[in-house]
Structure formats: structure tokens, C-alpha cells
Computed example of a mutant assay.
Amino acid sequence: MDTPKSSKLEIIIPAFRGHSQSFLMVLDGITEEDALKRIDDKTNHIIWMVGNFLDMRYALGNVLGLKEEFEFKDFFFQGKALDENLKYPTLKQLKDNFHEISPLVYHKLLEVSNEELDKAFPMGMNIDFFPENVLNFLGMCIGREDYLCGQMGLMRKILGYEGMKYDFDMNMKY
């Protein structure tokens, strides 16, 4: 494993890399058609979940100083509700965005200092046990990614796909 500049990220870095792997494995074999299906018109579709996952990746990058902007931000920014009247991007387009942003964010995670992680980052939560700083924002993004991978895993099963395989790609370094 690469060693981060900040020891505060010794948990975040493996989680980030694990989520990168889970993201790709949970989507393995999902068709473009199935990625737009909803269950009883009550759930978000996989495309929305993937887009929200990517919105987290871009948010991580932005807070760490990256200037890259998610080309499909208008569909997904801050968990924007699913709109059935929109023509969402394809799963392929979103996967391409994933492969573009993830290595950049990973390298920023390795480079960030303790001082940068301790900087105030107002989130408007106003919870006394939750300091609103960059480190806790990173943790929230990682938690959201985990949640979304779980949702996609459930959708996989509901749509009749096999459960996710844990075939980690040891050559993927992000």
C-alpha cells in the first residue's frame, strides 16, 4: 500500500481503494437497460446511484484542491432527486468518469497534510460531536460511497444478477 503523508488517512486510503474495487465489481455485467430500471417506481435506478457515487468522488477531489468538474453534476449534485423526465448519462459514460477522477483523488489523498485535514469545512450540520473539518468531510464521503455500493449490490440481486464477486484487481492502484 502507498503511504499517505498524513497518518490520519490510514483508514480512509484502504476504504477508498476498496470502494473503487467494489464499485467496478458491483457493476460487472449490468446492462445499460437494467441500469435504468426502478423497483415498483420506488427506488432510484443504478445509474442514479452510480452518478451519486461519482458526485462523492468529485467532492473528495474538490475539497482536496482538484479543479476537475463532474460533467454530469447537474444530474447528481448533492444527492439531487431522481427525475424521470431527464435523459441520464449511460453506465459507460459514468464508468469512464470514474476512471478519470479516481486516480487523481487517490493521489491527492496520499499528498494531503494533517494541517489541511484539520481545516474547517462548514457543512451546516451543527452537531457538537462532529467537528466540521476536511477530515470528517472525507469520512462522510467514504461512508456515502459504502452506502451506495450496498444499494447497488441489492439492486443487482433484485434484477436477477448473481451476487457481487470479490475478484480484486491487484493492478488497480486507486
Rank of each mutant, 00 (worst) to 15 (best):
H99Q: 13
T43I: 01
K92W: 03
D96S: 10
N136E: 06
K92E: 15
D2K: 12
G124E: 03
N114R: 07
S102P: 06
K42E: 12
E33V: 12
G65K: 07
L159E: 09
G139Y: 08
N126W: 12
F70P: 15
F23P: 11
K92I: 14
D169G: 02
L117Q: 03
E145W: 06
P89T: 03
L66A: 11
Y106E: 04
F77V: 13
N171G: 11
M164I: 11
G150M: 08
G61S: 05
N62Y: 07
N133T: 04
W48G: 00
N44K: 07
L9W: 07
S7N: 12
N85Q: 12
I127G: 05
N52I: 11
I142K: 02
D34P: 05
I47W: 07
I30S: 03
N133S: 04
S113I: 08
M170N: 09
K165Y: 11
D34M: 07
L159N: 00
M155E: 03
H107C: 04
I47D: 11
F16E: 04
M152F: 06
K80M: 05
K67Y: 11
D118S: 15
L109H: 00
I30L: 06
N133A: 03
E111N: 05
K119M: 15
D34K: 15
D41C: 11
K8S: 14
M125D: 00
I11C: 09
G61C: 02
L117I: 02
H99T: 13
L24Q: 08
V105R: 00
S7Q: 13
G163N: 15
F168C: 11
K73R: 14
S7I: 13
I39K: 12
H45F: 03
I101Y: 04
G61E: 09
L82P: 12
Q78M: 15
V26Y: 04
G153Y: 05
S7F: 13
E162W: 14
D55R: 01
N126T: 02
G29R: 13
S113R: 07
S20Y: 15
R38Q: 05
G18H: 10
R17A: 10
I39H: 13
R38M: 03
L104T: 10
S113L: 09
R57P: 06
L135H: 11
M123A: 08
D167P: 02
F53E: 00
H99K: 14
M56W: 07
G153I: 01
C141E: 08
G61Y: 00
D118M: 12
G124A: 10
P122D: 04
D55C: 08
L36E: 13
N126I: 02
L110A: 00
E68P: 04
C149R: 05
H45V: 00
E132A: 01
E116Q: 13
N62R: 10
M164Q: 11
A15C: 10
D40W: 07
G18C: 10
L110I: 01
T3Y: 09
K87Q: 15
N97G: 13
F53M: 05
L64C: 05
L54C: 01
K67T: 15
L9R: 00
Y58T: 00
D55A: 03
N52R: 14
D55L: 03
D41P: 10
F76N: 01
E116C: 08
T31S: 14
F70E: 01
R38A: 00
Q21S: 05
R156T: 03
S22I: 14
V134Q: 10
K80S: 02
L148Q: 11
N126A: 06
K5G: 04
F98K: 05
N52D: 15
M123S: 07
E116F: 07
